[in-house]
Amino acid sequence: MRKKDRIVFLFFSLFVGLFPLVVASIKAVSHYIDVMIFAGIFSLVSIGLCLLMGYAGQISLAQAAFMGIGAYCSGILTTHYGWPSSLALMVGLVVTGVVAYGVGVPSLKLKGHYLAMATLGFGMIVHIVLNEEVELTGGPSGLVGISGLGIGNFQISSPFAWYYLVWGCVATVMLFSLNLVRSRIGRAFLAIHADERAAQAMGVDVSNYKVKVFVLSALLASFAGSLYAHYVEFLNPGSFGLMWSIKFVLMVMVGGIQNLWGAVIGTVFLTFLSNEWLHFLADFEVLIYGLILLVIAMFIPQGLVTVVATKLLKKGLRDGA
């Protein structure tokens, strides 16, 4: 990690660590812990998408579907077959990994628009399957009675435990990803993003890396999906449809497409936006998302978080001097 990342990570840990203690003591916002748990779960997805889209330059409109595969593996195995949750989560990862590999190998041979359409089509197929396999998934009315998360007799039940578990995972994944992008593999991603032909001529096995980062992002989504299933203990296909895949793209874009911290901040911001601040504007939600995405993609491709952070940093320097 670079020095800057270390400082940011320190602040991040402090903020995340103290957040529930502060929030819990204020009645009006004590439910923010719950919102933050969701934000943490979604952050796992958006960090993966940031690696895939921002660094390796490959779009995916199937992240919600991968999340759904993980979630439903957890849900189905614990409800219908009585498996322990931790094992169900692992199986979810394996299944998602295999599916992502199977879809990724042929898809990632495709360029830009075609790749977007292929992942979009795949995402919709998963959504249809979740709706139609009523006996397994409960169909549109949903799957209820999923067990909580635990290993042996140790159950994660209090919101605090969930909060620290989820954000501990986010921190770990974040560290991993920060290290990854500042390594030979991260450089290979950036090279593929900038110029596939040149990357390949310099000895980078382009298709191999594309598939690997695609699978990695799918695994993170699957893991997040399993956490989601065990936390909410209820699933319905609506949470894993196209709109959610687009929301994940939006979360990454708000943060700045090539900015891992931005992806987390963007995710937290948008989760609060839709769960709290825009709740009374529910009917406008889709329109507002569309407009934000449009404006950012057109005018601030480096992302809101990056722009604001740079401004603040400059202001800080000027005021300090």
């Binding site: 990690m1 991993f176 990803s177 290290n179 990854l180 390594s183 030979r184 593999i185 991260g186 690997k212 990695l216």
Partner: peptide, 9 residues
């Protein structure tokens, strides 16, 4: 160095 070696430094 592979994914794990790079990710965990």
């Amino acid at each position: 160095a592979g994914f794990l070696a790079c990710g965990f430094r």
